[in-house]
Design a protein around this nucleic acid. Structure first.
Length: 603
RNA sequence: GGUGGCAUAGCUCAGCUGGAUAGAGCACCUGCCUUCUAAGCAGGCGGUCCUAGGUUCGAAUCCUAGUGCCAUCACCA
């Protein structure tokens, strides 16, 4: 007998071998492979063998072939209790003992579905990576949730993971905020205004833009050409001067830069904490923006890059179907690409066990990463084969695109507060939280509100664009986070009562219990969890986990509706149902943990 | 214009390596709370899977062409 954990894998292997054996003995033909699929709900059976592909080696009527193979399996495979053939599909019915054994095998397994860490196989996941001139918005939320969740999924799939971000803390955009604050700030601070630091700095970024636009308008009315005006508005020139001073290490500018960035970091920290994401290592662009130049020099020697007459350095990717791309300016300064090359190499130096990296960045940068990865491969780094751009679609509003300058962005902090308030409103209307303290209630509202937000975003395939409808995102019914949390809370309620009434949580399920169809369906669904984690990891897709958990919960609710759990008079059956409910809630909890969503004891 | 992505019910989305009558939720209509939490369950309505070809026993899924939307094609980041 196989170890219980291997039952699922085992049954396929056993069936495959037996089907081949059947074909050999009945038709005297060698079958290269057997195709299985889960049996559709409308038919009786648990697993289905597709007969059509066999027609290549076996001549005959698919239905008849199915019948003959089915009869052979029923006779020779212990787990097969019955079969039926519809068209070319051989539906196999497995007996209860198969399911009972499987369930007994996993019911006490603590981290069911996850795989032990294989330390030699580390991957670095980069996400968030904001600019320090304005607060985080809905787009960053998608980025953070995706990156965090993929990191958790990779961990569960057996990888060692380092979570990181590169903070874009330098450049002209920060100088704009700094300059506006210098000119109009009157010494304001987060303390003096009561504003979150990132919000305060963001306000000055907006103030800069306003002043800049006003200057352009004035220049235009003075008869200046529009192109000239946008390039030569005094305040813009001043910001550019500031950047030059910063790069030269000017004391005054650098200390202002440190002060204002400090405010922003304090603000970001609050947002990250509320969002429930974290990082193992931070990289700052101010530390890395000079990296990569020596690599370019090196690559130039190797002939990977070439120099143009003006001194700029390029790579020719036309043979790979791409264009020429600049990697170093003619004045010898770095471009974005230079920096990314340098940073990637630096990371592998910092963490020698890294075998791959994941970059969570919006799909508008698809081309950039395609080029970056290609360059790193051409430079000959072995780890360059394992780079992945976790590219995701933009988040749009029903009104169209979010644009910070037009004030149509959805602020991350505001959104979280709004979702929490909605959860509070709904919860109060339902009024089920009598025994909760005020603090416990607040925690729950936040848990539910954020659960709704996170699930709403993560259930969508990352590469697809999201239409964020505030109305719909606030819906807590149907395929939503709160619906799943609710099911979890209901199970917890049953488990509390089960404990009080002395249900045996350790009893082994018995074949003689005669599994209810709904129980069987639940066990089938549970069986899929480990595979689902692996699939989500290879596809970098939290959406697969979200949809899996939803299906599991749907199945449970149906079970809950049809059969009585605590009302069951047969003690052994009752124990099975309680334990099954417990296992479902554990899988919901682990699945949601992979999405960064918490589950409540009651709601 | 070149390149890449996306296109499935009124709306928002699933659909794994090609498989049976394409599935959920929302919305709309019916039922079900003196029994484990109705944020639930059961049922109904609703589809030219963008279009046209092709490959295959079989295509929403793979290939080709076209249409639409989005992104990208800077000595910006």
């Amino acid at each position: 007998m196989l170890p219980d954990k291997l039952m699922l894998m085992g049954i396929k292997t056993v069936l495959e071998a037996k089907v081949k054996e059947a074909v050999l003995s009945i038709f005297n033909a060698e079958l290269p492979a057997v195709e299985f699929q889960p049996t559709r709900k409308d038919f009786e059976g648990d697993i289905t063998v597709v007969v059509f592909p066999m027609l290549r080696v076996v001549k005959g009527n698919p239905a008849q072939i199915g019948e003959q193979i089915g009869a052979f399996l029923e006779e020779h495979v212990e787990e097969v209790s019955a079969f039926n053939v519809v068209k070319g599909f051989l539906n196999i019915v497995l007996n209860d003992s198969f399911y009972v054994d499987f369930f007994n095998g996993i019911k006490d397994e603590a981290n069911f579905g996850s795989v032990e860490e294989v330390a030699a196989d580390a991957v670095m996941v980069e996400y968030s990576s904001p600019n320090t001139n304005k607060p985080l918005h809905l787009g960053h939320i998608r980025n953070n949730l995706l990156g965090y969740s993929v990191a958790e999924i990779l961990k569960a799939s057996g990888k060692k993971v380092y979570k990181t971000q590169i903070i874009n803390d330098r450049g002209i955009h920060i100088c704009k905020s700094m300059l506006a604050w210098q000119k109009m700030g009157n010494g304001e601070t987060p303390e003096s205004t009561g504003l979150k630091g990132d919000k305060l700095v963001g306000n000055y970024y907006v103030a800069f833009d306003k002043a800049y636009k006003a200057e352009i308008a004035k220049m235009l009315s003075d008869g200046v050409d529009e192109k000239v005006a946008t390039k030569e508005a005094p305040i813009l020139l001043e910001a550019q001067q500031m950047l030059i001073k910063w790069e030269a290490g000017d004391d005054e500018i650098v200390s202002l830069w440190k002060k204002m960035n400090g405010w922003v970091y304090d603000g970001f920290e609050i947002t990250y904490k509320n969002l429930g994401v974290d990082f193992d290592q931070l990289y700052y662009e101010s530390d890395t923006y000079l990296l990569g130049k020596d690599v370019v020099a090196d690559g130039l020697k190797k002939g990977v890059f070439f120099k143009k007459d003006d001194g700029s350095v390029w790579i020719d990717l036309t043979e790979d179907g791409l264009d020429e791309k600049i990697v170093l300016r003619s004045d010898g300064t770095a471009v974005y690409m230079t920096q990314d090359i340098g940073t990637a190499i630096q990371r592998v130096k910092d963490y020698s066990d890294i075998k791959g990296m994941v970059y969570t960045v919006g799909n508008e940068q698809d081309y950039h990463f395609k080029v970056l990865f290609l360059i790193l491969k051409k430079l000959g780094f072995s780890w360059a084969e394992q780079l992945h751009h976790l590219s995701y679609g933009m988040v749009d509003l029903p009104s169209g695109k979010m644009k910070s300058r037009e004030g149509t962005v959805v602020d991350a902090d505001d959104l979280m507060v709004e979702m929490t308030n909605t959860a509070k409103k709904i919860s109060e209307e339902l009024g089920k939280l009598g025994e909760y303290s005020e603090n416990e209630k607040q925690d729950l509202y936040k848990m539910v509100g954020l659960g709704a937000l996170k699930y709403y975003i993560l259930k969508v395939d990352p590469k697809k664009r999201i239409l964020f409808d505030p109305e719909e995102s606030v819906d807590f019914q149907g395929n939503t986070g709160p619906f799943i949390q609710y099911t979890y809370a209901r199970i917890q309620s049953i488990l509390r009562k089960a404990k009080d009434t002395g249900v045996d949580f350790n009893a082994m399920a018995e074949v003689s219990d005669n599994l209810h169809p709904k129980e069987k369906e639940l066990i089938k669904q549970l069986q899929l969890f480990p595979d689902m984690i692996q699939l989500a990891a290879t596809n970098f897709s939290p959406a697969l986990i979200a949809n899996y958990v939803y299906d599991l919960v749907k199945e449970f609710n149906s079970f809950y509706q049809q059969v009585s759990i605590l009302g069951e008079t047969n003690e052994s059956k009752k124990a099975l149902r309680v334990q099954l409910s417990k296992k479902v809630s554990e899988v919901v909890e682990s699945g949601f943990k992979l999405l960064g969503i918490e589950v409540p004891e009651r709601m």
